[in-house]
C-alpha cells in the first residue's frame, strides 16, 4: 500500500508452444536470450516496472505454457487480466492459425466485461530466423487478421535479436493502462439500524 499511486497491470501471454513467449518476456524483462528451449511448466511470472507518461506502473507478466495439457489452468490464470498478448511464430502457419483459438479461449475463460474492446496485442516472433527466408506468414496476412478482430495492434519481433520487443511491450502497457483507467466506483452502505437486522454469524459467505 504505497502512498504514491501506482498501477499494477496483469498481462497474459498466450500462444502455441515454442513460438517464443518466454523468450520475449526474458528479452523484455532481463534483456537476455537463450537458444536453448525449455518448455514452461504451467506458468511463469515476471515483474517489470515501467514509466509511462510520468506515471510509474508495474507489469505483472503471466507467461503461460503453450502445451495443450495446461489449458485446464485457464480460468484461474486469465481472471482479471488487463491485457492479453497473442504470440505466433512467423515461420509456422499453424501457430498463426491458432491465434483465433487462443483469442476465443481467452475471452470465454476470462469473460471480460467488454469483450469487443478487450485489449489484445498480436506479436509475430522469430523474424530473424534464416534471415527471413523461412517465413510463411506474411505481414499483410497477419495485419488483415488483426484488423478483422477490432484493430488489434500488431508487432513483428525477434526475441533473439531484441528487435521491436521494447516497442511491443510499450504498446501492451499503454493498452492495458487504457482499460485500467475507468475507475470502479466503490460505494459502501451504511448500517440502517431501523431496517437492517444484523447478521449474527460473522462467517464469510464463501
Amino acid at each position: 500500500m504505497p502512498s504514491r499511486r501506482r498501477t499494477l497491470l496483469k498481462v497474459i501471454i498466450l500462444g502455441d508452444s515454442g513460438v517464443g513467449k518466454t523468450s520475449l518476456m526474458n528479452q523484455y524483462v532481463n534483456k537476455k536470450f537463450s537458444n536453448q528451449y525449455k518448455a514452461t511448466i504451467g506458468a511463469d511470472f515476471l515483474t517489470k516496472e515501467v514509466q509511462f507518461e510520468d506515471r510509474l506502473f508495474t507489469l505483472q507478466i503471466w507467461d503461460t505454457a503453450g502445451q495443450e495439457r495446461f489449458q485446464s489452468l485457464g480460468v484461474a490464470f486469465y481472471r482479471g487480466a488487463d491485457c492479453c498478448v497473442l504470440v505466433y511464430d512467423v515461420n509456422s502457419m499453424k501457430s498463426f492459425d491458432n491465434l483465433n483459438n487462443w483469442r476465443e479461449e481467452f475471452l470465454i475463460q476470462a469473460s471480460p466485461s467488454d469483450p469487443e474492446n478487450f485489449p489484445f496485442v498480436v506479436i509475430g516472433n522469430k523474424i530473424d530466423v534464416d534471415g527471413g527466408n523461412s517465413r510463411v506468414v506474411s505481414e499483410k496476412k497477419a495485419r488483415a487478421w488483426c484488423a478483422s478482430k477490432g484493430n488489434i495492434p500488431y508487432f513483428e519481433t525477434s526475441a533473439k535479436e531484441g528487435i521491436n520487443v521494447e516497442e511491443a511491450f510499450q504498446c501492451i502497457a499503454k493498452n492495458a493502462l487504457k482499460t485500467g483507467e475507468e475507475e470502479e466506483i466503490y460505494l459502501p452502505d451504511t448500517i440502517d439500524v431501523a431496517t437492517n437486522s444484523q447478521p449474527r454469524s460473522a462467517g464469510c459467505e464463501c
Binding site: 504505497p2 504451467g42 506458468a43 516496472e49 508495474t58 505483472q60 489452468l73 484461474a76 490464470f77 482479471g80
Partner: peptide, 28 residues
C-alpha cells in the same frame, strides 16, 4: 486475479510475480 494488495515485508509491486504464483496455486 493475483494482484498484490498487502505484504508484510517487501514492496507489493515488486512482489507481483510472487503474488501471481500464490494465486495460481490457490486457483489451480
Amino acid at each position: 486475479s493475483g494482484k498484490p494488495i498487502y505484504s508484510r515485508y517487501g514492496d507489493e509491486h515488486k512482489l507481483a510475480g510472487f503474488s501471481a504464483t500464490l494465486q495460481a496455486i490457490i486457483s489451480f
